[in-house]
Amino acid sequence: MPAGVYTRAMIERILIVCVGNICRSPMAEIVLRHHLGGGDHVRVESAGLAALVGNPIDPLAQRVLEANGLSGTEHVARQVTAAMIGTADLVLAMQKRHLDAIHAISPQARGKTFLMGRWSGNTEVSDPYGKTQPVFEASYRDIDRMAHDWRMHL
């Protein structure tokens, strides 16, 4: 099987990483879980490199999720750890610099760590934090497209 090709049987736990774990990674967690059918066959989680630990999802991110029939009200931000990375079968990051930070925490994760936008030409997801609702909506559209792409490759 070519590198970077997975089957659902191989992937049981996906970790999605951004910086604060209140905007992009929780949106991606919720959207990817939705694309994968929301079942228990794959556990999708998120964490942040400099997480705003204990904080809920950003209100604008929640608003965008709700507009698309989803919810992040249960989300609580958490800090990424080497243990989280180690137990994940697949680690997805929002930006290339996040990949470097993940590899610094857990060098052995290199073979299972990719950009969320891997199947879209290794596209990054820009940080909407502190910006307007249209910016959050654009991030959501990117994440939704990328989650669909991952579903097609899992």
Rank of each mutant, 00 (worst) to 15 (best):
V53P: 12
K131H: 14
P56H: 11
T113L: 07
Y129D: 14
G72H: 08
V91S: 04
M84A: 03
V91C: 07
G130M: 10
E137D: 10
G86T: 04
A83N: 06
L99R: 03
I57H: 02
P56K: 13
L92H: 11
E66D: 07
P59G: 02
E74I: 04
Y129A: 15
L52I: 13
A104G: 10
M94S: 03
Q79N: 10
T132K: 09
R118W: 15
L52A: 12
Q108V: 00
A104H: 08
R63V: 00
R97I: 14
K131Q: 09
E66M: 00
N122G: 08
G130T: 15
K96E: 11
I105W: 01
V53E: 09
T123G: 07
K131P: 15
I57Y: 04
A77S: 11
G86C: 05
L52V: 13
I102L: 07
W119T: 11
I105K: 00
M84Y: 01
G54F: 01
S120Q: 13
K112E: 02
L92S: 06
Y129E: 13
V125T: 13
K131V: 14
V80Y: 11
T87D: 07
Q62G: 02
R78I: 08
T87F: 05
G117I: 14
T132A: 11
Q133I: 12
A77D: 05
N122W: 14
D58W: 02
L70N: 12
V64Q: 01
Q95R: 06
L92F: 12
Q108W: 01
A88G: 12
P56I: 06
Q79G: 09
S126R: 02
N122L: 09
K131W: 04
D58V: 07
A101I: 05
K96A: 06
E74Y: 09
A88R: 02
G111Y: 04
L70P: 14
R63D: 08
K112H: 06
A101F: 04
L99E: 04
G130P: 15
L92I: 15
E124K: 01
A104I: 11
V76Q: 15
V53Y: 09
I102Y: 00
S71P: 14
L90M: 10
D100I: 06
S71Y: 12
S106V: 10
S106I: 06
H75I: 11
P56M: 01
G117Q: 09
Q108Y: 00
E66I: 03
M94I: 13
H103I: 08
Q95A: 08
I105L: 05
E74K: 15
L90F: 14
G86P: 05
T81R: 01
S126P: 00
E124P: 12
V80A: 07
D58F: 10
Q95F: 05
Q133R: 04
S120R: 05
K96D: 06
L70W: 07
K112Q: 03
R118T: 11
M116V: 10
V76T: 13
E74Q: 10
Q79F: 08
F114A: 04
D58E: 03
D100L: 10
L92E: 09
K131M: 12
G121P: 12
S126Q: 02
A82Q: 00
Q133T: 12
